[in-house]
Simulated scan of single mutants.
Amino acid sequence: MSEGFPKVAAEQPAVLDLEPGSYFWCTCGLSAKQPFCDGAHKACDMRPLKVEIQGAGKKAFCQCKHTKTAPFCDGSHCDL
């Protein structure tokens, strides 16, 4: 991992209502389209995480980038 990464994009999860499909979760925290990747990781050696959503519904994506259950929020932002 690059020094100083991941950057904390926000200290709360992004709760989104998603349709089934493939999504790319930002792991570096630099994306302007949080919680998803926009290619900003080129400034470091991190890469996005491909996520397959099977069923439509609300999902809570981590934005602090410190979750241990990536890409979903596990409450790690409470420890920052």
Rank of each mutant, 00 (worst) to 15 (best):
S22N: 15
D38C: 15
K59C: 01
D74P: 01
P13I: 02
L16E: 08
L16N: 04
L18C: 02
C37N: 05
H66A: 10
G57L: 06
L18P: 00
Q63V: 01
E52V: 11
P71E: 08
L49Y: 08
G57I: 06
A14D: 08
S22Y: 09
H66G: 15
K59V: 07
F61S: 00
A9K: 10
Y23M: 03
A40E: 11
L16F: 03
A9R: 08
V51N: 10
D45P: 02
V51Y: 05
K58R: 02
A40Q: 00
T67N: 04
D17L: 05
F24M: 13
C37R: 03
A40R: 10
A10K: 08
C64G: 05
H41S: 10
C28W: 07
V15G: 11
Q63G: 01
K42E: 08
D45V: 13
A60N: 07
R47I: 15
A43V: 09
C26W: 10
K58V: 09
K68F: 08
E52H: 11
Q63Y: 03
C26H: 04
E19P: 04
C37P: 01
K59N: 03
F24R: 09
L16W: 06
K33E: 15
Y23L: 00
C73I: 08
Q12L: 11
K42D: 08
V15A: 13
L30K: 07
Q54H: 06
C37S: 12
A40I: 09
I53L: 13
P35A: 07
K68W: 10
G29R: 03
L16R: 04
F72K: 04
W25D: 00
D74K: 08
K68P: 10
V51G: 08
A32S: 14
P13A: 05
Y23T: 01
D45S: 09
M46V: 14
C28S: 05
C62P: 00
C64L: 06
A32E: 05
M46H: 15
C62E: 06
S22W: 07
P35C: 12
C73H: 13
A43K: 12
L49A: 09
Q63E: 01
E52G: 07
A14S: 14
L16Q: 02
C28A: 15
C44F: 02
A9T: 12
T67S: 07
D74W: 00
K68Y: 01
E52R: 06
C28F: 04
D38M: 14
H66C: 14
G29K: 00
G29T: 02
C44L: 13
E52K: 07
F36H: 00
G29F: 02
G75R: 13
W25M: 09
P71L: 15
F72Q: 06
K65N: 12
G29Q: 02
K65S: 09
C73L: 05
P13R: 03
L18S: 02
A14E: 10
F36W: 06
P71A: 05
K50A: 11
K50R: 13
A56H: 06
C28G: 01
L16T: 03
S22K: 15
L18K: 00
I53H: 03
L30Q: 01
I53K: 04
G55S: 10
H66L: 12
G57W: 01
C26D: 07
C26G: 09
E52Q: 10
C26M: 11
